[in-house]
Simulated scan of single mutants.
Amino acid sequence: MRAVVQRVTDADVTVNGTVTGAIKKGFVVLLGVEDTDDIKDVTYIVDKVSGLRVFEDEDEKMNLSLVDVGGEVLAVSQFTLFGDARKGKRPSFIKAARPELAKELYDEFVRQIKAKGIITGEGVFQADMLVRINNDGPVTILLDSKKLF
């Protein structure tokens, strides 16, 4: 499982002209599910996202987590995180999970984040979404449950 985590001042996602999810201060999490992922991968990413210390403390040092600052999460499913463009110019998505597994694990990510008491907005799975992100910093962190980076 891969996640692109962006610290934001606010963000929202719109589908067919309707805002389906919106947050204030927190993280936009673009989440990609790999064909070999399972519940352990979800739990790893949830723990990383909720504990990632990239918010500034009183000394302006990135030392506080999402939970520490009462931040929110906007979760957006994004299979293109498993696009492999090493050969040619057209990415291959062969490692991306099939929609059934991807939706199951995306929903589990949202469930686990909410279970931590974090306010969570969502995109719409498999929809054409317009995501507005006001990246704060900018701070962008890449996570991979297989620890490839």
Rank of each mutant, 00 (worst) to 15 (best):
I39Y: 10
S145E: 02
T120M: 03
D37T: 09
M62L: 15
F55C: 09
Q78R: 03
K103E: 15
L81K: 07
T43S: 14
Y106S: 11
V19G: 04
V139Y: 06
E58F: 09
V110T: 04
L52N: 00
T120L: 09
M1H: 07
P91E: 07
I45K: 02
V28H: 04
V29N: 10
I94K: 13
D38F: 05
A97R: 08
D12I: 00
D68A: 05
K114M: 10
I23T: 07
P91N: 09
G71Y: 04
E56D: 14
T9Q: 12
M62N: 13
E60R: 15
G26F: 02
I133K: 01
P99Y: 02
E60P: 05
R111N: 14
N16T: 08
V29F: 11
A97V: 09
V42A: 06
T20Y: 05
L66Y: 05
G51L: 10
E100S: 12
S92Q: 11
D136K: 13
V54Y: 12
K95Q: 14
D37W: 05
I23N: 01
I23K: 01
S65Q: 09
A115R: 05
D12G: 05
G123H: 00
L64C: 09
D37V: 08
V67S: 09
K89H: 02
L148A: 13
V73C: 14
P99H: 05
G83T: 00
F27G: 05
L31Q: 06
Q78S: 03
K114E: 14
G51E: 09
V139N: 06
T43Y: 07
V5I: 15
L52W: 00
V42K: 04
L143C: 06
T80A: 00
Q112P: 01
G32M: 03
G32Q: 01
F79L: 07
F125A: 07
G32T: 03
P91L: 08
M62V: 12
V4G: 04
P99F: 03
